[in-house]
Amino acid sequence: MRAAPAVDAAGVAHAPAGANARIVSLVPSITELLFALGLEQRIVGRTGFCIHPRERVRAVPKVGGTKAVKIDAVRALKPTHVIVNIDENEPATVDLLRAFVPNIVVTHPLTPRDNIALYTLLGAIFDCRDAARHLADTLEARLRALALEAWPERRVLYVIWREPWMTVARDTYISAMLRLVNWHTWPAVRGGATGAARYPSFDFDAPWLANVERVLLSSEPYRFTDAHRNALAADPWLAGKKVELIDGEMVSWYGSRAIAGIDYLMQIARAAI
């Protein structure tokens, strides 16, 4: 019996790719996942932000950034598949790629558990179901381990940018990751499926900041440093709040990184108890 087509986040069904697939990934965490699935020989292009696995990814040609894709560079690679993400890639760019790429695979995980569907999708398209199933089983084991522990509730501000200051809405993947250890992001807003409202700007005199116990300065997309942490810790608006750096890759990268990300969150959450 022929396997049912795999359906991506845009509702598009994809047939099995075959052994001659040529993949361009425009999503850093997906590039890492493709390597974890054993697809290294089929990856022909990636963005400059696709930096993991660090030693092996260097051999893959770059095609610009996630927001500034070099269309001609992609065209020259003759991909059969380009993998994109609703949050990370511009709709206009994806439309341009559709003109000459036979298969655009759209991804949009919003919770850690969504990674299981992501593994299954890529496993079905690129015939690496065993590797995908192994990742799914490993992620399930991590989620079960999380559920066995009682995590005290924490109210956090997760900062991703400065000038302007920006954070995350509660319906983002980042916020869902933090909720695994009962850390709830503030402000208590939802941003919708797409758009800038998912990553709202804020000021440190916002009334809701009184609810926050911990301020988490992410290492990406803005690379916060000890100097930023020290400056904010001395700010009168944040008096009495814990200000600390957090590894943004571990919290915001889905795919195979989600497994290590859960281990990382469990470690720092235990230290905060």
Results as ranks from 00 to 15, higher is better:
residue 131 A to P: 09
residue 231 A to M: 12
residue 75 R to F: 03
residue 150 A to V: 11
residue 194 T to N: 12
residue 40 E to Q: 14
residue 159 V to I: 13
residue 85 N to E: 08
residue 58 R to V: 06
residue 18 G to H: 02
residue 10 A to P: 07
residue 172 T to Q: 04
residue 180 L to F: 12
residue 26 L to D: 02
residue 218 S to Q: 07
residue 124 A to W: 01
residue 210 A to C: 12
residue 58 R to T: 14
residue 261 G to Q: 07
residue 27 V to E: 00
residue 67 K to N: 03
residue 85 N to K: 04
residue 196 A to Q: 11
residue 99 A to C: 06
residue 112 P to N: 12
residue 140 E to G: 10
residue 178 L to T: 11
residue 247 D to Y: 02
residue 250 M to F: 03
residue 228 H to E: 13
residue 173 Y to F: 15
residue 272 A to G: 07
residue 6 A to Q: 04
residue 77 L to D: 10
residue 106 V to Q: 04
residue 23 I to D: 02
residue 248 G to C: 03
residue 126 F to I: 01
residue 236 P to N: 14
residue 100 F to A: 07
residue 210 A to V: 14
residue 93 T to M: 09
residue 87 D to N: 08
residue 220 E to N: 06
residue 65 G to F: 06
residue 176 A to C: 05
residue 208 W to F: 06
residue 260 A to P: 00
residue 49 F to Q: 08
residue 242 K to I: 13
residue 57 V to H: 01
residue 215 V to E: 08
residue 231 A to Q: 15
residue 79 P to V: 05
residue 145 A to K: 12
residue 21 A to K: 00
residue 92 A to M: 12
residue 248 G to R: 01
residue 226 D to L: 05
residue 271 A to S: 11
residue 207 P to A: 12
residue 67 K to L: 15
residue 213 E to L: 05
residue 4 A to F: 11
residue 118 L to I: 09
residue 109 P to E: 08
residue 171 D to K: 13
residue 246 I to K: 03
residue 46 R to T: 00
residue 215 V to W: 04
residue 100 F to V: 04
residue 262 I to Y: 09
residue 197 A to R: 15
residue 24 V to H: 06
residue 270 R to L: 05
residue 214 R to W: 12
residue 217 L to E: 02
residue 30 I to G: 03
residue 155 R to M: 07
residue 176 A to N: 14
residue 76 A to R: 13
residue 16 P to E: 00
residue 21 A to I: 01
residue 196 A to P: 02
residue 252 S to A: 14
residue 159 V to Y: 08
residue 5 P to L: 02
residue 110 L to D: 11
residue 75 R to T: 05
residue 148 L to C: 08
residue 255 G to H: 05
residue 75 R to S: 08
residue 179 R to M: 14
residue 79 P to A: 04
residue 98 R to Q: 15
residue 207 P to V: 07
residue 251 V to G: 04
residue 112 P to E: 04
residue 83 I to D: 01
residue 272 A to I: 09
residue 238 L to A: 06
residue 261 G to V: 06
residue 265 L to G: 11
residue 135 L to Q: 09
residue 225 T to A: 10
residue 259 I to L: 04
residue 5 P to I: 00
residue 141 A to Q: 15
residue 56 R to A: 02
residue 203 D to L: 10
residue 73 A to H: 11
residue 131 A to M: 07
residue 194 T to K: 12
residue 94 V to T: 09
residue 130 D to I: 10
residue 243 V to F: 06
residue 63 V to D: 08
residue 52 H to R: 01
residue 129 R to T: 13
residue 14 H to A: 02
residue 224 F to C: 15
residue 237 W to C: 11
residue 87 D to M: 05
residue 29 S to Y: 01
residue 267 Q to P: 03
residue 156 V to E: 05
residue 208 W to N: 04
residue 134 H to P: 03
residue 80 T to V: 02
residue 266 M to E: 11
residue 64 G to A: 12
residue 134 H to Q: 12
residue 260 A to L: 07
residue 273 I to Y: 13
